[in-house]
Design a protein around this nucleic acid. Structure first.
Length: 411
RNA sequence: CGGGCUGUCGUAUACCGGUAGUACGCUUGGUUUGGGACCAAGUAGACUGGGUUCGAUUCCCAGCAGCCCGACCA
């Protein structure tokens, strides 16, 4: 799109109410805007990035047989009473209507998905299956912090699998681990499989952790096993596999998976009839990925002192085209004609191009380009046109090179 | 939820118990144009509620909001 028509602008100043790098850069570059502590609005650029992240997650969940659904955010109180979490989950947002009815805002969806899918679980022939959704979650966090890494309203993919027995759950659980690896790999992240506490869900769980100082978790990483253990279950940092002492690292948890067993099928009596005619409780697993936290984490770990630097897979555009028309009116007109034509051709070939056609200084265009973090920058000026070229530079590289327009178009 | 810090033009900041200044932004005009250009003019501000005081943006109290540390959490 044309940068002159982009609905947002960049800012030179860091917002004073943001301390975390991801939030400072995302706000300055106009990807998001803070609404409340831990609550952000997604602007045009941020919406594209979030959507690209969620599409990658969606594709990998589909690949392991997940069926996408979309549950409600407004929940009946009774479901949360049934599991005891109306009282025990401190972070649950509760609200009272003008008719004095009480509701919960969805902090997670076990209380919804079990009664919902339980309506269709009758026979062992109906199992296994997995359903997932990508949705906004609400958690009344006592302390929102670190920009997009810990919000009170945030985006999450949550998948729930239903099985006839724990062996079948174990098999599927392993497949999801591989699906998660694929997600993080496509997002350009090095996510470490980490053994962790199951919290209120189960004895143990697995997390995927991305190493960053802004992260809230401390993990002990074992190089030999390429695995880690969360400090919450191992104060001494011993590897759960080989027993070696791991290196302590700060990390951001971008995924978390649990074997729930019958913890949630019990209270809702979610059962099926087995081959022998007996009624058996269904067994569950649940699998979360915080997609808005992922956006913050990617921003955080890829940024440099000049700004954001998105990996191609989630970047809002693949090419940032800068026109530097210069001061001579006749030459400037020629340059703008040529660069508009180049923009049209790139777009026609399916490139997502951000075209800086604004009438601002070259320095401002370069600075904005670095801040926005589009993976490839292409500059057209009097100099480059003299050799019928564009100057190309990867955001993460400091070397620019001249490439002929034909080569650039056929890259 | 405990502890600490902070609330001033759109943004970032300064000063002050006596009519609030600077920079950026924005508007207009002119000069500029390969790393956030320059000149001129204009634009716009003290979180809310109490209290002290002749007078409060400044001091005190409360509320609200934000940030940081801790506890908690995807």
């Amino acid at each position: 799109m044309l940068q002159s028509t982009l609905a947002t602008k960049t800012s030179k100043e860091n917002p004073k109410d943001e301390h975390a790098l991801n939030a400072q850069l995302l706000v300055r570059a106009g990807y998001v805007d803070k609404v409340l502590a831990g609550v952000y609005a997604y602007l045009p650029l941020g919406t594209i990035v979030l959507r690209k992240i969620e599409q990658i997650v969606r594709e990998e969940m589909d690949r392991v047989g997940g069926q996408e659904i979309f549950m409600s955010s407004l929940h009946p109180k009774e479901n949360w009473i049934a599991t005891g979490r109306w009282e025990s989950l401190d972070a649950l947002f509760k609200l009272t209507s003008r008719y004095d009815n009480e509701y919960a805002l969805g902090a997670t969806h076990e209380e919804e998905v079990v009664p919902l899918m339980g309506k269709f679980i009758r026979s062992y022939r109906d199992l296994p299956f997995a359903v997932y959704q990508i949705q906004t979650k609400f958690r009344d966090e006592p302390r929102a912090k670190s920009g997009l890494l810990r919000g009170r309203e945030f985006r999450m993919k949550d998948m729930y699998s239903f099985h006839t027995n724990t062996t079948d759950l174990d098999t599927y659980y392993s497949r999801v681990i591989e699906a998660y690896r694929a997600v993080f790999s496509r997002l350009g992240l090095d996510a470490i499989l980490t053994e962790a506490s199951g919290g209120s869900f189960s004895k143990l769980s697995h997390e995927f952790q991305v190493v960053t100082e802004t992260g809230e978790d401390t993990i002990f990483y074992c190089k030999q096993c390429d695995k880690a253990v969360n400090k919450e279950i191992s104060d001494r940092g011993l590897c759960m596999t080989c027993g070696a002492v791991g290196a302590p690292l700060r990390a951001s948890e971008v995924g978390n998976i649990f074997k729930l067993g019958t913890k949630y099928t019990d209270p809702f009596d979610c059962s099926f009839t087995d081959e022998h005619g007996a009624s058996v409780r269904a067994v569950m697993g649940c699998y979360g990925i915080g997609t808005s936290r992922l956006m913050g984490t990617i921003a955080e770990v890829t940024a440099d002192e000049k700004g954001l630097a998105w990996p191609e897979s989630v970047a809002p555009f693949s090419v940032h085209l800068l026109a530097l028309p210069g001061k001579k009116a006749d030459i400037a007109a020629t340059i703008m004609t040529r660069v508009r034509s180049l923009y049209d051709q790139l777009t026609a070939k399916g490139n997502a191009v951000l075209f800086d056609d604004r009438d601002v200084s070259a320095g401002e265009k370069f600075a904005d380009s670095d801040l926005l973090g589009v993976p490839l920058r292409a500059v057209v000026s009097e100099k480059t046109l003299a050799s019928n070229s564009v100057e190309v530079k990867e955001r993460k590289s400091s070397d620019a090179r001249l490439v002929t327009i034909d080569q650039f178009l056929s890259r």
